[in-house]
């Protein structure tokens, strides 16, 4: 049975822990994978995919050692294999420019500024995952309880025979 993953890329262990913890409501359906930099994130993704798993969303910090989160997300967007992944930039201080670049080039779905609010993070991730599920999942049903139920119901209503 393949699992669907949330990938968190953040170099500071404390912040990583906190993000992962805030995403726990999603663990009923999704699994969380963490990585400390872009290269590590690529390794993790390769490993997950080779195990038949899927990555639905990547939350990346902007200021990562080595490759920037923004550039990592742009690279994800440019690779057809990973284009469908929802991309969220978590930024402590990314300038306006960086954010705009990420939106333009990485098709960035959202950005969250640090310090973040757990509820807002969850609602952003929920929205993005819902979007991912609608576009990519074979059936929306497994996700109704965790994500945006009414929206998924709408989808179901619009294509009631596919489930």
């Amino acid at each position: 049975m393949s699992d669907v993953f949330i990938l968190v890329v953040e170099d500071e262990p404390e912040v990583r822990d906190a993000i992962a913890r805030d995403l726990e409501p999603f663990t009923a359906v999704f699994r969380i994978e963490v990585a400390e930099d872009a290269a590590d994130a690529r390794e993790a993704m390769a490993e997950l995919r080779s195990g038949g798993n899927e990555v639905a969303i990547v939350l990346a910090d902007h200021l990562l050692p080595g490759e920037h989160g923004t550039d990592f997300l742009i690279a994800l967007h440019q690779d057809p294999d990973t284009q469908a992944i929802r991309k969220v930039l978590i930024t402590g201080q990314a300038g306006h420019e960086d954010t705009i670049r990420a939106i333009n080039e990485a098709n960035l779905n959202h950005y969250i500024t640090k310090p973040w609010d757990a509820e807002r993070l969850q609602s952003v991730v929920s929205d993005e995952l819902t979007e991912w599920v609608i576009e990519n999942a074979e059936s929306v049903l497994p996700y109704v309880s965790v994500l945006d139920g009414p929206r998924l119901m709408d989808t179901l209503r619009n294509r009631p025979w596919k489930h």
């Binding site: 262990p13 990583r16 994978e33 990585a35 400390e36 590590d40 390794e43 993790a44």
Partner: peptide, 21 residues
């Protein structure tokens, strides 16, 4: 704090031993 790479390697090894990822 353990690096995420190490943690993943540990998990891989343990998953091999337990057969449950």
């Amino acid at each position: 704090p353990v690096s995420t790479r190490t943690e993943r390697a540990q998990r891989r090894e343990l998953a091999g031993a337990l057969g449950d990822d």
